[in-house]
Write a protein that binds this DNA or RNA. Structure first.
Lengths: 193, 193
DNA sequence: CACGCTATCAACGCTGTGTCGACTGAACCA
DNA sequence: TGGTTCAGTCGACACAGCGTTGATAGCGTG
């Protein structure tokens, strides 16, 4: 087994385990064992557990961006399609719920994860803010809330609502309705009154 | 110094430290030291760090409920006052931001904190859901989103937006505007279109 | 064939947690 | 007054998990 295979094995083991338990219920020994190596050898491939999660998160974010590029609401569109964009988020994060949930927890303790998540969030927030501003510009959406602030709270809402739904932390909204509920709330918050 | 004094000293030390650093940057040794006792003696008073946080959180929730009772929107009110209710949340949690931030982190690992937070959230969600339902009933708010689901996403949004604001985790909205922004978003989400 | 590079791990030291057993002193009887 | 109880205290231990060091083994390549 080559080095690349080992690295892949660690990542695969981590994602599989994260589907079952928290990151800090997983020891480096567990990961190493699942990849067929000893703990010190783990450090040859990754500097820490967080570094593994960081790489998993990086993939997930790349997938969101890739699948999102096709459907992300356009500033120039007459009536931007938020529903599809939100659906991409819901679907991709649901497919990787272990990584998603672990990220939400780990970003509070790991600066690296914090930063990666932060940068991605900012990109999404900025883009949505532009779309909202354009809608206000053309009179389709009312002014009254700063587009960037509104975009921030809506994106933050999505993040936490999805995390709660995935972990079934009451109160939460059902998985199969979460996309529709979020979208309806966005539409009202952006276009309402 | 009596036993009760020691217990109070531990709680006070914990809240003071939480204003500066994370719960898991605080060791039991730190808490014991600050309260003038040794680590084993700490266990005479609390079963764990989480138990200390649990008690601090309990107080904060009690304060929210006490100060909230006066202003919580009434189902029978002609036009419920969400602004004041949200302000109570913002103010009380801001006064105890250390405890608030630690709670958001610890509930992912501590079942006891999870449960206390969960139960309180559910109470707030249920109450707001009733108010929304009443508003829909009397025709002041449009139907289209289930009141309980809407209440869930709005309360979840508040929780996360406040946490992000307190930790200054970008993207976040400024502290002095967060109440107004949340309230404006609630109003649109409940009454909009 | 020797040099360097990848890959590996036994063994170590460290930090933090939680427990056990023994000790102290004050209050409360008998 | 002298024993008993009990809240309060801590030294010392065992343990889990992290991260590092240093030594080793194999493989390719000039």
């Amino acid at each position: 087994m080559s080095g690349d295979d080992r690295e892949r094995a660690i990542l695969a083991a981590a994602e599989a385990m994260l589907a079952q338990r928290t990151l800090d219920e997983i020891s480096i020994d567990d990961l190493a064992g699942a990849a067929g190596i000893s703990r010190p050898t783990f450090y040859f491939y990754f500097a820490s557990k967080d570094a593994v999660l960081l790489q998993l998160l990086d993939r997930v974010i790349a997938e969101v961006d890739r699948r999102g590029a096709a459907v992300i609401p356009d500033t120039s569109a007459a009536s931007p399609d938020f529903a599809n964009a939100i659906n991409v988020f819901v679907e991709v994060f649901a497919e990787h719920r272990g990584v998603t949930v672990a990220t939400v927890a780990a970003r509070l303790s790991s600066p690296a994860i914090q930063e990666l998540w932060s940068i991605s969030m900012q990109r999404w927030v900025d883009h949505v803010a532009e779309v909202i501003a354009a809608e206000q510009e053309r009179g389709a959406a009312p002014r009254g809330i700063d587009p960037h602030h509104l975009s921030t709270v809506l994106n933050t809402m999505n993040e936490q609502v999805l995390s709660a739904t995935f972990t079934r932390t009451v109160p939460f909204v059902p998985t199969d309705e979460v996309g529709a509920i979020l979208h309806a709330t966005w539409r009202r918050a952006i276009y309402g009154r």
